[in-house]
């Protein structure tokens, strides 16, 4: 869990780190706490998983990944976790989750994101997933993104 100072630190950095030589000192000054404390708290949040990582967040379209497919699968509940772990282990899958179905509109319970420079590339990756799922797969689809409508990341209020 986080305290009020951690929360203030999240609000101060969720839009990005200052692009100055001593960014943690700049944040410390803004929050009125010592720079050492800023760095210790960030380190602790990294260790606890509140911060997943620190670095560059690319727009994947702009770096050549123009085909982005959300592959979705209707997988037998008895084996979905075992198969989900194997699909999550594929090197080209960037996100893999089990989620609830919403029948009749949505029969799919396994989601895996794949990316490529073309839809053919995504389709080939989906075929590989299909092969792993075998007889446990009762239906599937690929939902390609055609536009980023928003990509701001987390924003909590100050």
């Amino acid at each position: 869990m986080i305290d009020a100072t951690d929360r203030a630190l999240i609000v101060a950095t969720q839009g990005g780190l200052p692009l100055v030589a001593r960014p943690y000192h700049a944040i410390a000054e803004q929050l009125g706490i010592p720079a050492e404390e800023v760095m210790c708290r960030l380190q602790a949040m990294l260790a606890s998983g509140v911060i997943r990582r620190i670095g560059a967040v690319p727009n994947h379209y702009a770096i050549g990944w123009t085909a982005n497919g959300m592959t979705v699968w209707d997988v037998d509940d008895a084996v979905v976790d075992e198969l989900g772990a194997r699909i999550g282990g594929l090197d080209f899958v960037t996100h893999c989750y089990r989620r609830p179905r919403a029948r009749p509109t949505w029969p799919y319970n396994l989601f895996a994101m794949v990316h490529g420079a073309s839809r053919d590339e995504c389709a080939a990756k989906a075929a590989e997933i299909r092969g792993l799922l075998g007889a446990a797969c009762r239906g599937s689809d690929i939902l390609y993104s055609t536009r980023i409508l928003k990509k701001s990341g987390l924003r909590i209020g100050s």
Partner: peptide, 23 residues
């Protein structure tokens, strides 16, 4: 980094948070 952000090659440069880990 300034240029990559201005060109929107990067959407952000900084920490990525996992909100579930903070409740």
């Amino acid at each position: 980094l300034q240029q990559l952000l201005a060109d929107k090659v990067l959407t952000r440069f900084g920490p990525m948070f996992q909100i579930e880990e903070m409740g």
